[in-house]
Design a protein around this nucleic acid. Structure first.
Length: 564
RNA sequence: GUGCCCGUAGCUCAGUCGGAUAGAGCGUUGGUUUCCGAAGCCAAAGGUCAUGGGUUCAACUCCCAUCGGGCAUACCA
């Protein structure tokens, strides 16, 4: 990454400047240079602010910048200083290196070993198997799957897990609801009790139950059926789990009970009002929590603690959970439990996502299973996987998404995802045209293709594009090409940031900027022309763009179409 | 009441560890195609960064308070 490169250059220069006594009273180099891309490109392509050295050196920032800059060896780039900034401008040699590196590394250009193989368990979605996913689940599915892709690409070892809440009270309600639906279908008159699942999806489930002639219990059948539907949708939504972990299995393996006993042995439990309480307030929780209710059954938390213990026993170094913001109060008690069990709770990282509001007919609807709702399935059917994923990902998780159904359905062509995909299709089209026979419209004669397949693969292997900048062509074209290369160069830094900050939305933003840089380049530079040497260089840039954009989209689980 | 998230252009949102003239998309207005995909590109208009204080060479960014919106405060899952 060039940012790191320039930061290192400045660091070395500061060492030398200190040796040469050019930095006044500054004797030790503790400065960590931060390289940024200036908003105003006339300053340079990269910039490092050294103003903060002024205090220790007792020299004005502009002088410091100059005194450091003179120790930087300018090779492939030029240096200038303005105020307390040291600015760098890339020259064609370095731009050429970037293109060469992309062509040789291809879609691994932006990969890194940031994660150093850290074993990460990423748990997300984890819905009840009591019905179809709602739109909110779509946000967690998109977020989790994208984050897993990104982190794996950056050298983490991510294991994706879905916790099936198949053990609680809700399963009894589900069973009862299915039973009633089955009876209804058989012509019996039934009365619906409060608090069941009256959704129509259970009618279909009931039909399948009757058809299957199963002697399974209503509960088991409904659970399996719902889970199957959920899994089908997840696959379609490009969300792949390594493991679907059943809550019930924790009970069957006696892990819940063992976990409670262990907490008890460590003196973390007590009885009050006929219930068993966990002293979570010994840690950062605001109050103690019930593990065993007075009727003897466990709370949801109890099994969840056992589940997290299970994850840690499987050797994961880091546990990342994606939860809705409505669960934020749940974090301290889970961390308390992990500490109480003798682990370090700092390994647990909870990504709290703000909720998705559904707006339909101009009115906001509350997400909920019991009411009529728009399911994720319906949304995907209407706007497609690509657009749904992109919309769910393009905002920081700290922002509540207002998903306007009518807008999403009616104005899909205004979606930013199309803008990005269009750029990819356009690049593909140019690469196709390069090897296709052409038609001379005036004379109606067929002309041979500009390039042979062999010539194209030669470009793919690497090409020197340096004189793209020294050749006489117009300034706009040169600048657009340079801007495109610089934008391509950003990929690695952006993807690493997305991994480190657990923020896939950075890639949505980047994909738009990259697409914009390419459109801009396209408008000022005719790629295919009779000047074959020039065409080759521009084709190389088109190819680089295609590689990086396709990878970016791949990481967020959005397709990169060859044609639209 | 308490805790967490948010408040930036008409709308939806970016803004990295405190740095140069606060950015993008949509919408609005104007321009742009004999030629590789116009779902594009160029330009213009649009801002009291919720409010008030504090910290400092420098604050959208950090701290405190206030106002407004959302979420949570279960022996539900």
């Amino acid at each position: 990454m060039k940012k790191n490169f320039f930061a290192q250059q400045v660091s070395l220069a500061i060492d030398e400047a200190i040796k040469a006594k050019k930095l006044g009273q500054l004797e030790e180099n503790n400065f960590k240079p931060v390289c940024e891309i200036p908003k105003n490109t006339q300053f340079g392509d990269f910039a490092i602010n050294v103003s903060s050295l002024a205090r220790d050196a007792r020299i004005a920032p502009p002088i410091i910048a100059q005194n450091i800059a003179q120790f930087i060896k300018q090779d492939g780039f030029s240096v200038n200083t303005v105020a307390g900034f040291i600015n760098f401008k890339l020259e064609e040699k370095m731009l050429n290196e970037i293109v060469g590196e992309i062509l040789s590394k291809k879609d691994l250009y932006a990969a890194s070993n940031l994660g150093q193989g850290e074993k990460v368990n990423l748990e997300y979605v984890s819905a009840n198997p009591t019905g179809p996913f709602h739109i909110g689940h779509g946000r967690w599915a998109a977020l989790g799957s994208a984050l897993a892709n990104i982190m794996n690409y950056c050298g983490y070892d991510v294991y994706q897990e879905f916790y099936i809440n198949d053990a609680g009270n809700q399963i009894n309600k589900l069973a009862r609801s299915l039973e009633l639906r089955v009876k209804e279908l058989k012509g019996e008159k039934v009365e619906w009790e409060e608090d069941l699942y009256p959704g129509e999806y259970l009618i279909d489930c009931a039909k399948r139950y009757i058809e299957s002639n199963s002697n399974e219990s209503y509960g088991d059948f409904a659970k399996a059926d719902m889970l199957r539907l959920q899994k089908e949708l997840l696959e379609k939504f490009r969300t792949h789990f390594d493991c679907f972990f059943s809550e019930l299995s924790l009970y069957r393996n006696n892990e819940v009970e063992k976990c409670v006993q262990e907490l008890d042995k460590k003196g973390k439990l007590y009885e009050k009002d006929g219930a068993v309480w966990f002293k979570s307030s010994d840690y950062t929780d605001s109050q103690d929590r019930v593990l065993k209710k007075s009727d003897g059954s466990n709370t949801y938390l109890t099994a969840d603690i056992a589940y997290h213990k299970n994850k840690l026993e499987r050797g994961f170094e880091r546990l990342i959970n994606i939860w809705g913001a409505d669960h934020h109060g749940y974090i301290p008690r889970m961390k308390a439990a992990i500490d109480a069990l003798g682990y370090d709770s700092s390994c647990l990282e909870v990504l709290l996502g703000q909720l998705v509001n559904i707006i339909q007919d101009g009115e906001q609807m509350r997400m909920g299973k019991r009411k009529k709702m728009v399911t994720l399935d319906e949304l995907v059917e209407e706007v497609g996987v690509d657009a749904t994923r992109f919309w769910m990902l393009m905002r920081s998780i700290d922002t509540t998404i207002d998903f306007d159904i009518d807008l999403a359905k009616s104005q899909t062509d205004k979606n930013p995802v199309f803008y990005v995909q269009y750029a990819h299709a356009r690049a593909c089209s140019i690469l196709r045209k390069a090897v296709e026979k052409r038609l001379d419209v005036e004379n109606k004669v067929e002309l041979p293709a500009l390039f042979s397949e062999e010539e194209i693969s030669k470009i793919q292997e690497g090409i020197d594009i340096s004189d793209l900048f020294s050749q006489t062509c117009d300034e706009n074209s040169k600048e657009a090409a340079k801007a495109l290369i610089l934008k391509l160069e950003e990929a690695k830094g952006i993807i690493e940031a997305a991994a480190k900050l657990r923020a896939p939305y950075l890639l949505c933003k980047y994909s738009q900027e990259l697409a914009n840089a390419f459109h801009h380049f396209y408008n000022f530079s005719r790629v295919l022309s009779d000047d074959k040497e020039l065409s080759k260089k521009r084709l190389a840039l088109t190819l680089c763009f295609k590689i990086i954009l396709a990878k970016t989209l791949d990481l967020i689980g959005v397709s990169a179409p060859e044609k639209m």
